[in-house]
Design a protein around this nucleic acid. Structure first.
Length: 556
DNA sequence: GGAGAAATAT
DNA sequence: TATATTTCTC
């Protein structure tokens, strides 16, 4: 079939003029369906006998783009003969009988869809999708002659790559042109192959949900929305569709930063807002059609390659808080102090390109949440922060009880990871498990290396001495009998003289509880973190005059 | 308009 | 379930 320029011109209004073969045994039903189809400017040829219909498509295949065939109970073949002998055409089977077996048989025999009667306008409106799908899913050599013009027309209309060009993964789409499809609700839906099977509304639900779900009219592309937060710095965020972002003009190497975007999803635009979904589907097809190229980065999922030539107005960027990025974050928080750390200031300090205040705020929220989760053991942090890392040595001596006095200290090493790590390996989980104390390290005592015998069984964990194996910290009546051991197994005996003057548990509890109940406030000692001396001084101020001498390792 | 919490999405 | 994003409230 020769397709003329005139034909192309006609297809400008695609799918108007779509040629539909209607095989329907009931004349009344046929008339109704035909009327509906013609109301949509489809050209309908009605047949009541499938042999006649088969003859027609055999003699004049160019006259039919799609067939709607009733599973007839009156016909001996029930319409299946047509289905089996007209495989070149996309065939939609219909029936009043909603029997699953019949539906499955139809599909198994090659029907593109089964529509339950009655056929509403909604059901009929989008049957053209099957034509497009058939045209694009079939190889040129086996493509039904009648569908070639459809394909060619669409290729021209949408500036889709030709078969030869598709490997180039170059898609340029005229959104305005493609926007005409929005009148038909959907264009091409994502699916399993290059141009996956479309569906009429009956089967379009999933796709529709997908669209609706992402069609939020919000500028959640923070890079764009909050560009003012970037301090005017050059953008170097590694985006997954750099050329989609007009702000990002640096080279991939330049764009590489410690902040990576795990995902940058192109927002599906809402047709109801006058934006074309065609561009979206084009991008989706693009992704699907070239998975290798688009999955070259492990952190990138479902993205459009750099060769994408269209510029969607909105996109989502998902920040991957890598250990390095988190490290920067923690550093900024530390610099500001947790009390003063607000997203905008953190962002200012971090100076990470592309990172937005929202990103930081979110992360800060999580950061604080984790702090609260570990709240019951927050007091541990005070001791972990002690200069010279004397916490585990000091703590029992100081007799600061755990928040729950009968609580057994975790046998597992205390590995707070909501902190800064200088050697944290990439990909390591940076969040601590609930219940582990937070460590806000400072440079001078930051240790991120396993030391033999230190219960440091993982990289990236601060090395902490091991608590005594049997009991919680001794600070009550049993204290004299208890020893504390450091990681090397050395134990420390509490000097008896000190124990005699040991403060009452209530007193200690009061101090501790006050401190841990308001972690956002400066610690009672007025220091953050408190130095050992400050703690001692404060205790002294509170009447705890006799403090066991500071033990050093191996002081037994 | 920013911060923070809650709700929602992935 | 963990984490990121979005929305809502102040």
């Amino acid at each position: 079939m020769v397709f003329t320029a005139n034909d192309l011109q006609e297809w400008k209004d695609f799918p108007k003029g779509l040629k539909v073969l209607l095989l329907e045994g009931d004349s009344i039903s046929a008339a109704e369906i035909r009327a509906k189809l013609e109301a949509m400017d489809y050209n309908v040829s009605t047949f009541c006998d499938e042999n006649e219909a088969l003859s027609a498509i055999s003699s004049t295949p160019q006259n039919f783009h799609i067939a709607i065939v009733e599973v007839s109970s009156s016909s001996s073949q029930g319409g299946f003969k047509f289905l089996e002998n007209a495989k070149d055409l996309p065939i939609i089977m219909t029936s009043n009988n909603h029997c699953l077996n019949i539906m499955m048989k139809c599909i198994a025999l090659g029907a593109v869809e089964f529509l339950s009667k009655p056929l509403s306008e909604d059901k009929l409106r989008n049957i053209w999708q099957h034509v497009v799908h058939k045209a694009f899913s079939s190889g040129t050599s086996i493509l039904c002659e009648s569908l070639k013009p459809v394909k060619e027309s669409l290729v021209t209309m949408l500036q889709l790559p030709t078969d030869n060009e598709q490997d180039e993964n170059k898609v340029s789409i005229d959104i305005d042109e493609a926007a005409r499809f929005t009148d038909y609700d959907h264009v091409l839906s994502p699916g399993n192959d290059k141009y996956p099977a479309p569906s009429t509304p009956q089967l379009m639900h999933g796709t529709r949900l997908l669209d609706d779900g992402d069609c939020q009219d919000q500028t959640n592309c923070s890079t764009e929305k909050e560009s003012g937060e970037h301090d005017g710095e050059s953008k170097s965020v590694e985006t997954t569709c750099g050329n989609l972002n007009a702000e990002t003009e640096s080279t991939p190497q330049e764009r590489k930063s410690d902040m990576t975007l795990a995902r940058e999803e192109v927002d599906l635009v809402d047709a109801s807002k006058g934006e074309s979904i065609a561009s979206l589907h084009t991008q989706k097809r693009k992704v699907l059609s070239n998975p290798d190229k688009n999955t070259k980065s492990a952190n990138i999922v479902g993205v459009v390659s750099d060769s994408c030539e269209i510029k969607p107005r909105r996109k989502k960027m998902k920040v991957d808080w890598t250990p390095e990025l988190h490290k920067k974050f923690v550093k900024a928080v530390e610099q500001l102090s947790i009390d003063q750390a607000i997203p905008s200031r953190i962002l200012e300090i971090m100076k990470v390109e592309g990172l937005t205040r929202h990103n930081v705020a979110s992360h800060l929220q999580k950061y604080r949440m984790h702090r609260r989760q570990i709240f019951p053991k927050e007091e541990d942090r005070k001791w972990l922060n002690q200069r010279e890392r004397i916490y585990c040595v000091q703590r029992p001596i100081m007799a600061f009880p755990p928040y729950h006095s009968n609580q057994t200290l975790p046998m597992a090493p205390i590995y707070p990871m909501w902190g800064q790590s200088s050697t944290q390996t990439a990909g390591m989980h940076i969040w601590s498990s609930p219940g582990y104390p937070l460590w806000q390290p400072t440079a001078e005592h930051w240790h991120w290396k396993p030391i033999p015998g230190m219960h440091a069984d993982a990289w990236g964990c601060p090395v902490l001495p091991v608590p005594p194996p049997q009991a919680p910290f001794p600070y009550t009546k049993n204290m004299p009998a208890l020893l504390n051991a450091d990681a090397t197994g050395q134990t420390f005996t509490m000097p008896q003289s000190s124990l005699e003057h040991y403060p009452a548990e209530e007193v200690v509890d009061k101090v501790v509880k006050e401190a841990v109940s308001k972690p956002w406030l400066p610690l009672p000692l007025g220091l953050k973190p408190p130095s050992t001396d400050s703690v001692l001084a404060e205790l002294s101020r509170q009447g705890i005059c006799s403090i066991p001498p500071r033990s050093s390792k191996g002081s037994n």
